[in-house]
């Protein structure tokens, strides 16, 4: 265990019970995420990656083992984390600005104050002109950016991201990567970023935890020693990127292939 570990999973397992039997989402998970670190978690779908995030957020308790946040057992809910889920969780009846400002509203900030902060973030995200729009009026990419602005606007210590750009097309995703890295570099927040896309993980992360297929276990934790700042559009042509990609793929390949066979 490292001293500066902010989030730590110790011998964690999570099982789900249903009528058709018990499913082990993940087991024997030991992972520590350092303060200020960008940790990516990759693995085939259904390997319990989202479960890890839910446990760090205190929305779900581990079936075995423990999850620590800042040296203490994760409280339920863990209000030190902001969670950007895979699905759209903007409040559809609120305008864009009121969505971004909601966390500040919950903390009792005056309307003028919270809207000022919201507008700052919308400006940074290139969403000026859409403050009064409703989520249903925006494109998928814009909604993602509103969700990101909402998560960042109240400055949680840690940000959990569950395939946040999964629904976007490849080009748009790279643009979002660039913006995310730019924002993250300025704030040095701790991030756990779940994805099944190796290139995405390599582009963004300091370290990558590779999971096997269900039941999800950590196959390897790799350090991504690519220099920062990174050019998200060109980094994938870097020879070292290719080498890292090959190595990570070798860990992933077996479980991904077996997954294909099973389905």
């Amino acid at each position: 265990m490292t001293d500066d570990a902010l989030i730590e999973y110790r011998n964690v397992a999570r099982r789900f019970h249903s009528r058709s039997g018990t499913v082990v989402a993940c087991e024997d998970v030991n992972l520590s995420v350092r303060r200020g670190e960008f940790m990516a978690v990759v693995g085939p779908s259904g390997c319990g990656k989202s479960t890890l995030l839910n446990m760090a957020a205190g929305l779900m308790a581990p079936s075995a083992g423990q999850v620590f946040y800042g040296g203490r057992q994760v409280p339920a809910p863990n209000t030190d984390v902001g969670y950007l889920t895979q699905r759209d969780t903007l409040l559809p009846w609120r305008t864009v600005e009121d969505n971004v400002a909601i966390a500040l509203e919950l903390r009792g900030q005056s309307r003028a104050d919270r809207l000022r902060v919201a507008h700052e973030w919308l400006d940074r995200m290139g969403l000026i002109g859409f403050e009064k729009s409703y989520p249903a009026q925006l494109s998928g990419g814009m909604r993602r950016r509103v969700a990101l602005a909402r998560t960042l606007a109240y400055e949680p210590e840690t940000i959990l991201m569950d395939e946040p750009f999964g629904a976007l097309d490849a080009q748009l995703r790279m643009v979002m990567h660039e913006e995310l890295l730019k924002l993250w570099t300025g704030m040095q927040k701790t991030v756990i970023f779940v994805t099944h896309d190796l290139a995405e993980a390599l582009t963004l992360a300091d370290r990558i935890a590779v999971f096997s297929a269900r039941p999800g276990r950590i196959r390897s934790v790799e350090t991504v020693d690519l220099p920062r700042p990174r050019d998200v559009f060109r980094i994938r042509f870097d020879p070292h990127f290719g080498k890292l990609h090959d190595r990570l793929w070798s860990y992933l390949e077996a479980s991904v292939r077996s997954d294909v066979m099973v389905n």
Binding site: N78, T79, G82, T89, I102, P156
Partner: peptide
């Protein structure tokens, strides 16, 4: 009411009353 909407607000530190007013009520409307 969608559980995910409620969860996101809980993580932001919303009280029970705030969740009722800001998620459950408008959603049930």
């Amino acid at each position: 009411v969608e559980a995910e909407l409620v969860d996101v607000l809980r993580l932001m530190g919303a009280s029970r009353g705030q969740i009722v007013r800001k998620v459950i009520l408008p959603s049930a409307l």
